[in-house]
Write a protein that binds this DNA or RNA. Sequence first.
DNA 1: CAGATTCATGAGAATTATTTTCAGCGGTTC
DNA 2: GAACCGCTGAAAATAATTCTCATGAATCTG
Lengths: 301, 301
Amino acid sequence: MASSDPPPPAGVLRWLSESGDELHGALKTIADFILTEPAAASRLTIVELAERTGTSPGTVTRFSRACGLHRYADLRVAIAEEVGRSGANRWSTDIGQQLHPDDSLDRVIEVLVSANTQALVDTAERLDPEVLDQVAEAIVGARHCHFFGVGTSAITAEEFGLRVRRIGIACWTWPDVHSALIAASQADERDVFVGISFSGHVAETVEVITAAAARSTTTVVITQDRESPLARRADLLLTTAPPAGNQQAQATADRHAQFLLVDIVYARIAQLTHPAVVEVLDRTASALDGHRLNRRPRRKA
Amino acid sequence: MASSDPPPPAGVLRWLSESGDELHGALKTIADFILTEPAAASRLTIVELAERTGTSPGTVTRFSRACGLHRYADLRVAIAEEVGRSGANRWSTDIGQQLHPDDSLDRVIEVLVSANTQALVDTAERLDPEVLDQVAEAIVGARHCHFFGVGTSAITAEEFGLRVRRIGIACWTWPDVHSALIAASQADERDVFVGISFSGHVAETVEVITAAAARSTTTVVITQDRESPLARRADLLLTTAPPAGNQQAQATADRHAQFLLVDIVYARIAQLTHPAVVEVLDRTASALDGHRLNRRPRRKA
DNA sequence: CAGATTCATGAGAATTATTTTCAGCGGTTC
DNA sequence: GAACCGCTGAAAATAATTCTCATGAATCTG
């Protein structure tokens, strides 16, 4: 029975390429073919495979048995599974490479996806749950809540504001320094100011958060650099993942990281105020009904 | 022939969970079973599968055809491949669970990260590179470029505009329908209009894109639903990944997906206009120098 | 509301794929 | 060189799959 090897517990292809040398003759031929074109092999019937390898169907059946599988059909799905598994690594590989003007579009996509997902994972990993909780609580408990960012971070500020507003908390996103400074000058310790800046070195945002801090508001900062001037002025500091490899993808990756922080804080707020939020969200949704077209009615007819 | 949908080019399981609703009766039963236990399903013979689902072998064959596959054997390997693919990455496990008010913060983070990364990967996979190229080229070649979105999609529109503006293309993001309609009324075939809507059913966005189309501009649409009124009016359609499991994370996941599309188009545009972009980006960066604090001087002193 | 039509379904026949059996053949041993 | 061993493919046997078609449910139409 167990002459050569125990059958492959998982991974026919791996087993073939490793202990595959122990196969002789026709079986070896079949093994080689499968290793060369596993994807194709998994789509062939037993007869076709036999023809392609110059063997016979019966031999292919014996081959399947030699692989520790009962039927030829099992061999097929085993190979297919492994093909799928190896094909899946597309998205986790070559971050850190620069993009060149003549790179294929596929490569651009690949790099951006990996950079962005990596940023999400990295950001999540370095997250301090305690701070996060405090941020959520601060926002929930705030009388007023203010968001500020400049340039690309203005967009994160807007998103944050939109979300928080949507669940019924009084908040503003200020589109420029002056408005933000005015808001800060009228704030007090019951309020929360959120400043967002990728670098943490943007003068306007620092200025706004400084002014807010001077009025004893709770200051929250989202940035990448925890040593930056902006970060130093934060009561509660949330950091996005630091640059990982690829330069060009950095900006976009950080955007995703910032949004992830917003997502999480938002979700946490929703948790903290659960029943209220559910109701508010329903109201929000139905407030938009008149602006939707061709929609199947909500919840069956 | 093509009654409901084109067959799945890649990803039976994905196709089933998306357009799977279009299947009725016995076919639906089979689809559900496969979605529930894909790994098991791929190892069953057609007779076994028929028994388990309370249908007949013939129906299973028809099911395979409905999936765009010729033979049942093809269905098996297709499922197996996909099982292998999803089993390979660990972030795809616990998506689909609802968030409960008393879930731990760690769990919230986990779910959001998985949902978001999944959305990125899914979106990338379903991307049509050709369309993407056409979008990039259209924007590069446009006289004027306009972005419009309402609600949360307004933020994506803004981000898109910000990016494109940054590399020196004349473009606008319109904050409200009226402005957008006015812009559309003055546009012509040299211009590009980009409409963004998660659902594709937002009246305002549809209206703007319709108006733009009437003026023969090139219309680009970013949405999730390729059958939506908005999508139907698009010259060039980019779709984000459809809901994958978790309801609450859906909105945030789609936001990331939209941004990924923006990232990619942006990167592509940068490629197409390479030397120009490098220079413009340098200028953009130095334009902000006066607003940075405590920064080590760029590129040595 | 009856009749017509369409369509999904499963039963069974027809086909195809797979496995098993077995005879032949090349190599090895005595 | 004869006997044996074990691999191999041909062909028979079996299992799986597909095809055909009658049935009945559902929808449409007059």
